[in-house]
Design a protein around this nucleic acid. Sequence first.
DNA 1: CGTCAAACGCAACTAGAGTTGCGTTATGAG
DNA 2: CTCATAACGCAACTCTAGTTGCGTTTGACG
Lengths: 210, 210
Amino acid sequence: MSSQESAPGSARPGGRTARNTTAVLQATLDELGEHGYGAITVDLVAARSGVHKATVYRRWGGVDGLVRAALDWSADQDWEPARTGGLYTDLLALAETVAEGFTEAPEREVSAAAIAAAFESGAVADALHRFMADRHRRSAVVVTEAIARGELPEGTDPEEVVRSAVAPVYYRLLVSREPVSPADLRRTARITADAAAAGAFVPAAPDPAP
Amino acid sequence: MSSQESAPGSARPGGRTARNTTAVLQATLDELGEHGYGAITVDLVAARSGVHKATVYRRWGGVDGLVRAALDWSADQDWEPARTGGLYTDLLALAETVAEGFTEAPEREVSAAAIAAAFESGAVADALHRFMADRHRRSAVVVTEAIARGELPEGTDPEEVVRSAVAPVYYRLLVSREPVSPADLRRTARITADAAAAGAFVPAAPDPAP
DNA sequence: CGTCAAACGCAACTAGAGTTGCGTTATGAG
DNA sequence: CTCATAACGCAACTCTAGTTGCGTTTGACG
């Protein structure tokens, strides 16, 4: 998790600034995981990281900036979807990952914080957009492989399939505030996989039933 | 919008308390619509409504309480989905309503505020859950009518169909922070309608392709 | 090794959110 | 009409998030 002590491309790679950066961002993630987005404070992060309060305000501007930076920081870490050999089970694993990310501590609070902070800061919203776009790109592999296996028609939009599979999970957890059952996960994966097989995600194709 | 000056079941239906309630909640909605959730303040709402700051804090506890009350208040207003005669077009209209509710001012800020405040307050989260559950119940009519018309198999879970149709819209707007195109709306409605027609929302039914 | 600028630590300050005690007003019941 | 009380308005207060001026430290570079 904290394996990047030196950023080669930065201005002062191994200096005090870089150490402060990792200390502050790690403290931000820890604080979020323990107390959640509603309770996080610049003073708490400063005290936890050992970096002075004024420095944190100067470099990150506030809680929003901390979340934004932590999000960009997390986006750098490698991530790839689980591969099971079939599209339905791949999508199911994807949906399960999302559900776990929002229900199991401490990741739960961090994930929710990113979404919540995006409402209050355009910079966080942009960072969240980039983060999700990256996840879409990486997750798309399971769809392109399904196309290669002949499970799906050529021209299927891979990222759109991913969105369709995970959207209902986010909806239940963040919008309608309902629990997500294993049956819910299976239904999303099933519907998306079937729709994809039927060619519903081929952009150029006209509506199958006008 | 402000047609309920007296709540018959309340303790003091037509008194100063009731007037203050409507004034404060209306001011909350107005303030949210103009400046958004990030800028709303108890002082601003108090000044706008003419009700004293201390009174607002005593009765609602803070911004979270205001949003929660405004949400419950809005939930009382009658709402029903548009009816077009077919399931696909009904679901499309539903998805369009959601998209407009989050993109057109001033409703946009109010909708976003409800979701955002739910992250910071369990009471708001509960209110949001109730609000969405009510919307699900009301929207389910378009599905039950489709069942009655023979478009969908008996036993189809109506509210689950609704969730499936609107979830991708919320996902793009609030999570991945992407624009929602008319083609996106048509795709969601199409996929959900087709899946429903195939019996994907009949709970007792086993997986169609084991 | 010496220099210099950027970043940092520190402490004091400002501003605004949230609280509290008390007198006043309005409302529903008798 | 009178009265008891709950809700309200008011002002003064506390507390904490956020800012700022200044001296000090750090690390890149010659």
